[in-house]
């Protein structure tokens, strides 16, 4: 059972079940807990090799026990997401904790990842349970529906869920090369039906300055 102790601390109540969390993100616990490092992201050998090859490495630990465990990471804001059989795509660096029963994987995202400076791959979480994702500043949730497609700056993108198509838009023109660009040379466009999490801050991206 995930709940937010404050906007920056996640409290997880456990009754013998397991939670996967970012390595070293435990700040306190009450009760009986066992911490085990999951080598290579906890997706087995294949997942480990995939993660190593794709640069979506996560150092993940498995926490199992009874009681309450608190997680936090660098005072990032934490957002809770409930999954009911659907898939959440999230940057591995933004993933704090998932229910033990959720599957994590790596997918190819195409050029979008490259513009973001995070590589060509992203992490997916699927199954039934809860996920805690981190953002720099409280994330804004934006709904995408067929009549309202959304465009997001890659540096502010955190995660998305639902039935969304995502494509990279490039506004690079000769003006960009002249240094007269609009500052938003790379944009991610979402179409379909779902939710996008955006943080009020921009990571440094290759496309960020042009």
């Amino acid at each position: 059972m995930f709940r937010l102790q404050s906007s920056k601390v996640l409290a997880v109540e456990m009754t013998g079940d397991a939670v996967k969390a970012k390595n070293g993100s435990m700040v306190a616990y009450d009760g009986d807990m066992a911490f085990k490092k999951l080598t290579g992201g906890g997706d087995g050998i294949r997942g480990m090799v995939t993660r190593r090859l794709t640069g979506e490495q996560m150092t993940v630990m498995e926490v199992r026990g009874r009681g309450i465990c608190w997680f936090a990471d660098r005072a990032s804001d934490i957002n809770l997401v409930g999954l009911q059989g659907d898939t959440l795509s999230v940057e591995s660096s933004n993933l704090l904790a998932t229910d033990g029963g959720l599957r994590t994987g790596t997918v190819f995202t195409g050029l979008r990842g490259a513009s973001q400076g995070n590589g060509l791959f992203t992490t997916t979480v699927e199954g039934h349970g809860q996920v805690a994702i981190m953002s720099d500043g409280p994330a804004v949730l934006l709904r995408v529906s067929p009549q309202y497609p959304l465009t997001v700056d890659p540096g502010a993108y955190v995660a998305h869920q639902g039935n969304l198509r995502r494509s990279l838009q490039s506004g690079v023109t000769f003006r960009t090369l002249l240094g007269e660009g609009g500052g938003e040379a790379f944009q991610m466009r979402f179409e379909g039906d779902g939710l996008v999490y955006v943080q009020p801050s921009e990571r440094n991206t290759i496309g960020g300055d042009v």
């Binding site: 804004v140 934006l142 309202y148 497609p149 959304l150 465009t151 997001v152 700056d153 540096g155 502010a156 609009g182 500052g183 938003e184 996008v196 955006v198 943080q199 009020p200 921009e202 960020g208 300055d209």
Partner: peptide, 9 residues
């Protein structure tokens, strides 16, 4: 200011 847009409809 350049690069401060985070998303738009």
């Amino acid at each position: 200011q350049k690069g401060k847009m985070i998303a738009y409809y």
